[in-house]
Structures are given as C-alpha cells and as structure tokens.
Nucleic acid binder design. Structure first.
Length: 712
DNA sequence: TACTTTGTCCTTTTT
DNA sequence: GGACAAAGTA
C-alpha cells in the first residue's frame, strides 16, 4: 500500500501535498486530475491530518464517485465508512433522509426523475386547465428547475412580466403538489438540503465542524446553488480543494456557472492556484490542434497543455458527399484499424447530437461490426422498469399519485379515463391521495391488489419482493402477449437481479442511513439511472455524443459531422457565449484521442426528414493546416449535386430552379458573406429569391435582382 | 374502454 | 426519422 508520490510530476506533487488551506487546481484534459484528487485524500488520511469522517468529496456522476472510491481503497486499506463521497444529489439525499423531520419530509419520500417530474407537471396543468400551447410543460419544467438552481422559491422570483407571473404561479402550485405527495425532484434535493442547513444553525455547525476537508471534482460544472451549498460547510478550519478546467465547461445550458471558479478564488481568498498542464494522454499534433482551437475563445483563465510524447500522426480529415458517404468511409477506416490491431472498444465515434448516430449504426450493422451506443434510454428509465418501480413505490408509499396513475390501469384492468377523472375530483375535494379515495370506485380492484402485494411481501427480503411484485402485478403476463415483449420481460428479470446486487452492495459498505431496504432501492433507482447496460464489457465500437465522452479516452477517435449548423449547432450561435461553449465542446472531443484523430464532415445530410446542405465547420479552419492531412481535396470546388431525379421532391425542385439560373445545392459567392450553398429557392424572374447557407455568416434569403451572387 | 392512425415537434444531459 | 399526443375506430 503506497501512494507512489514519486510517480507524480512536480505540479501534481505540489497539489497533493498542499497545506490545509483553500486551493484551486486548474487541471487540463488528460493531466491526471482524478489521480491528484484521490492521492490528495489518501495523503491527508495517511498523514493523520484528517480522519475519513472529516472528508466530504463531491463529484457529478456516480461513475466518477465510484472510480474515486475504487482507486482510494487501492491506495489505503481504510474503511470508506464515515467518509462522505458521492454526487451532489446523492449527498443531499443522504442528508435529507437523516434529517427528514427537520426538512419537513416523510422518511420514505420518493425522488422524481426528469420524466416523472414532467408527468407530474402535466398532470397539474391539466387539472387546473392551463393552456399547454401557451405554457408548454417542458418550458415550465425548465423554468422551475432554473429557479431552484438559482436558489429561488416562488415568492422570491422577480416578476418581470405577466408571463413570468404565470410561470411562478405554476411553480408554486407544483411545489405544493410535491409537498402534499411527499415527492422531491432533483433540484429540490439540493435546494431542500441547502435550506435545511442554512435555517438550522446547530445542524450547519455540526457538519461544518465535522468536514474539515472538502474536495470538489469538475468544479467548472457547478451551478450557483451547488456553490452556495458547498459554502455552507465552511468554518475557520475547513479547507476546500476544488479541481476544474474552464476549457471543459460544457454544461452552461443547464445552469453550470464557470464563474464559480473566479468567485471561489475571491470569496475564499485562495492562496494556492496550481496548474496541471502536462498531458499524459495525447500525441503532440492532437494537443496542438486542441490548443490552437481553444485559443479562439476569449473568456479563459488561460492554460496551455503540453506533452512529452512525440508529435505523432497528423489529423486525418475527410469530406463526404453525404452522411451515408461519411458513414461508409468511417466503417472502412474502422475495419482497417481493427485489422492493424486496435481493439474496437478503444475506438470511439463522437457526434454533436444523438440523431446523427443512426446513419453510422446502419453502416456498421450492414458490415457486421459490433458497436455500443451510449446515452439514450438507460435501464431504470425503460417503460417496463418504470412500471415495475411504480408498483414498488406504491408499496413503500401508497400516496404517490404519480405511481398510482402510471400503473392503476397497466396492465389494463378496466380503470379508464373516466374513472381516473372521478378519482382526481374526489381526491381534490378531500385533499387526499388517489389511493385514499379509491374505495367506492372501479379502482378498488387496484387498491386491493396493492394491499395484497403489501401483505404478501411484508416479510420477504428485497429481491424476492421485487420478484413477487413483477410476477403478481400482471406485467409479465401482459408482455407475453406483446410482439416485442420478450426484451421487456428480460428487463424485468434484470430488475430482480439489480435488487439482489444492490442488497449485496449495501451489506458490504453499510454506508446507508437507517431506511427500509425498499425505499433505499427506489432511491438508488432514481439517483443512478443504471449505466450498467446489457452488453457492457463486450468488444464493441463505442458511439456517443461529445457530451457523454467527457472524462473518457480512446486510442482512435472519429469526430463526425463537423458542419456549420450542426457543430457548432445552429441554435447555439444565437445564444450568449454559445459559440464559445461549442468550441469548448470541440476541444473536449479532440482531447479524447490518444493516438489518432479523424475529423469529418458531409456536404449533404438528412436531418429531420429533410436534406440539408452544410458547409464545413469553422472549427476545421481554426486548426492549423500543418497538423492535418486531407483525405479528400480540401473543400472540393466541384461540389457534387446530389441526384434528386428519383426523389418525390424532384418536381418541386425543378420548378423552383426554373428561371433562377442557379441550382439547389450549388456553391455560390457573395461579396459580403463569402462562400455558401444554395439550400432553397422561390419565385422567378425579378421576384426570384434564393436561400443560401453561408456557414459562419448564417443562412440568408437573398433577392437575385439585388444580391450580387456568383457561381463558385 | 382499448387499440390504431394521424399530426406535430424537434440540441447537448446528469442527477 | 421517431417520439408523443390527440383524434378516430372497433
């Protein structure tokens, strides 16, 4: 058991062995951030500076928390019990369970994931007759979460206009409903525990005394509420150790505030700022490309990665005629890499948005190359699993209306929309839950079923409870009659396994507070979406969005769809600092690659059922030419016009093109906007207008009589 | 009541 | 192209 301090570089060593004072570690991509964080904890404990119980370590994902714990137990044979290590939400949950009375919550309060939250909100809006066109539930959800993440309750939101006033009303009604039903959404976990501590000085003091060392990972991704939450624990002898990289801040769209890094430095008068700039991951050319790209951003703390490894290969750039062409080429390259001995699992295909994966999947499938797509539906989010969990929730907490509505009539048992409506009216009148008013109605069958399940499983261990509920609820029977039901039944069986695995884990770590096993399992299901999908560990090509690639590394990386409008995404260009975030995203993507990086774009692409004509991304031009090797002629002048003759749009297309003198798909130049592609046309003669995608300069409608357009 | 068909809308995502 | 909700049919 050794910390292997001798393997650290001078900066890493300095960070690990800092005195008990506040520190900000600016850790570039691939600079050994996790290693520094875990070694720091081990060093503190080993040196007797703190006991495990004095440590509070926060991460963003369960995966990161798990990895830290594994590495730590390898370095120190210390019982992790007593150490608080986990995600913000996991830790907030732990605190709320421990002090549920003070937080005004039932002990077995249920957690709503985003899906559940949206469903609850829709239900509320329907019941109070809110026009869903004027107030789309998604926007309301977004609004509520944004307020909570700013730490604002309904009464504290500034009412800037009539619209905001309505949103706030809905926020208040929603909060009331949650309180009544004893459920808590994700941001509420944080806000509630924040309020708990800030109102209860004795409790706050207790935790502030207890945690003398607070360590935060991915600090650039914290939002304002998380920062204030962290600050609650400060006392005279608390030291904060925050690790982050402003260049990898890619979650502003959901409230992350990079400014927290600067605020932290100022608020805590941070004396130690350590920069980790040596990269141990990528070859020189890849790193140079990343550095050159990110240098175009203005709002940076500033940092330059370097590597002791050689320059390596140039970046390979490919221009496809179409998205299919791009996919075809990609598959060939993957096959070549595999032939030369690169394991498929060490190759990643990255894209900006999930919709892009389909074409690649299709090409891979037809060539029989195994692949695994990350993201999308996770285990605990699958409909059949959520159904089973709803039954379990009702056992733990019968007043959960969300769960009630989800499965009262699933599988179908004659409880229709009318019955439900009557129940809801009765519940509203009585101020009670749906389960409580089910007696005199058709829904009584359901109530009885739940009560039977409850008594039948009262003395069973958790996995058997789950097994029994899955069988007796009728879910299995129902899916047997469905065409694609076999997979779903398999997932339900997997849920029983998950319960068994969870029970086993609990027994080993014993970190949980005194909550009943069922509630603990339901909490686990809500907080941990279940990344351990089937097929994990198999030899397969890795496919994911750039966002989900953060923190990972691969021998070879394909960064696809580098087109204006796609990456950078068209909607981000209009957002404040949106372009800089897109660039950071590209930076994250590039720095995932160890040895080989492919960049590709396509001239045409099917998106949302329409063919789009895209120009190459500006990010390609921001990478120095000397680092790249073009596999196709650069921005080929003789753009191939796709063959529309067989398409059903051909007729319309021809009519549009008549009398205009340009073709759709043709390259043109404009004295002010530069080069672009014609994407649409209308009118003819002096009325004729064409729509041109100028890439960086945007998409514009131009009257041919006025604009000086030239064929390029 | 339950299942099928049609019309709308599209970033990024972890908890 | 696909998810989801509302409208249509047995």
């Amino acid at each position: 058991m050794s910390l292997h301090l001798e393997h650290l570089n001078p900066e890493q060593l300095a960070a690990v062995t800092l005195p008990d004072e506040h520190a900000l570690i600016l850790a570039g991509a691939g600079s050994g951030k996790t290693r520094v964080l875990t070694t720091r904890i081990a060093w503190l404990i080993k040196g007797g500076r703190v006991s495990p119980a004095g440590i509070l370590a926060v991460t963003f994902t369960n995966k990161a928390a798990r990895e830290m714990l594994t590495r730590l137990t390898a370095m120190l044979p210390v019982n992790p019990r007593g150490m608080w290590m986990g995600t913000f939400h996991g830790l907030a949950n732990r605190m709320l369970r421990a002090h549920h009375r003070e937080a005004r919550l039932p002990q077995s309060f249920q957690i709503l994931d985003s899906q559940d939250q949206l469903a609850a909100l829709k239900r509320l809006m329907k019941a109070s007759g809110v026009d869903e066109d004027r107030f789309p539930p998604r926007e309301v959800q977004w609004f509520i979460n944004a307020q909570k993440e700013e730490g604002l309750r309904p009464g504290e939101v500034p009412l800037t206009d009539e619209n905001v006033r309505r949103f706030v009303e809905l926020y208040a009604a929603y909060d009331e409903q949650c309180q009544r039903e004893g459920v808590v959404d994700f941001p509420e976990l944080l806000l509630r525990s924040f309020e708990l501590l800030s109102r209860n000085e004795i409790l706050r003091e207790h935790y502030a005394q207890r945690f003398s060392h607070i360590l935060v990972d991915e600090f650039q991704d914290t939002n304002r509420l998380q920062y204030r939450w962290l600050k609650l624990f400060s006392s005279r002898h608390t030291s904060y150790f925050c690790v982050g990289d402003d260049d990898q801040s890619i979650y502003t769209f959901r409230g992350a505030n990079v400014g927290n890094m600067a605020d932290f430095e100022r608020d805590f008068k941070v004396k130690h700022v350590v920069r980790l700039e040596q990269n141990y991951r990528s070859h020189g050319n890849i790193l140079d490309a990343a550095n050159a790209l990110i240098a175009n951003n203005r709002n940076r703390l500033g940092k330059n990665l370097w590597t002791a490894a050689g320059a390596g290969e140039p970046l390979r750039v490919f221009e496809g005629e179409s998205d299919n062409d791009e996919a075809r080429w990609l598959v060939e390259e993957v096959q070549a890499l595999a032939r030369d001995g690169t394991p498929l699992s060490h190759i990643a295909v990255l894209y900006r948005s999930n919709a892009q994966s389909r074409v690649v999947e299709h090409a891979l499938f037809s060539q029989g190359i195994p692949y695994r797509v990350y993201g999308g539906l996770r285990f605990f989010e699958r409909a059949e699993v959520k159904h089973a969990l709803a039954y379990l929730r009702l056992l733990a907490f019968p007043d959960d209306d969300n769960a009630f509505l989800r499965v009262a009539n699933f599988p179908p048992r004659g409880i229709g929309a009318r019955t439900i409506e009557q129940l809801q009216d009765a519940a509203k009148q009585a101020g009670a839950s749906l389960m409580k008013v089910a007696d005199g109605s058709k829904a009584l069958v359901f109530k009885k079923l739940i009560e039977e399940l409850k008594s039948e499983t009262a003395n069973l261990p958790l996995p058997e409870v789950v097994e029994h509920v899955v069988a007796r609820s009728g879910l299995i029977e129902h899916y047997k009659t469905e065409r694609e039901g076999a997979d779903r039944i398999q997932n339900l069986e997997e849920l029983v396994n998950a319960a068994a695995a969870f029970t086993q884990e609990e027994r080993e770590t014993e970190s949980g507070e005194a909550v009943d096993p069922l509630t603990a399992f339901l909490t686990h299901a809500a907080l941990e979406a279940g990344e351990h999908q089937a097929g994990e560990g198999q030899e397969a090509l890795q496919m994911m969005t750039v966002h989900s690639a953060k923190g990972l590394e691969f021998d070879a990386v394909f960064l696809t769809g580098l087109e204006e409008g796609l990456f950078p995404h068209e909607q981000s260009v209009n957002e404040r600092d949106g372009l800089e975030e897109e660039r950071r995203l590209a930076y994250v993507a590039i720095t995932r690659a160890r040895r080989r990086l492919y960049l590709s774009h396509a001239q045409t692409r099917m998106l949302h059922g329409q063919t789009r004509y895209n120009v190459a991304s500006r990010f390609l031009e921001e990478i120095p030419n000397g680092l790249m090797k073009w596999l196709t002629p650069r921005f080929s002048r003789q753009r191939l016009v796709p063959d529309f003759s067989r398409s059903k749009d051909a007729f319309m297309m021809k009519r549009k093109e008549e009398g205009i003198g340009f073709r759709i798909g043709q390259n043109v130049t404009h004295p002010k906007f530069g080069t672009g592609v014609i994407v649409d046309a209308e009118g003819s003669g002096t009325e004729a207008r064409v729509q041109v995608n100028f890439g960086a300069a945007g998409v514009k409608w131009l009257a041919l009589a006025v604009a000086k357009l030239q064929a390029a």
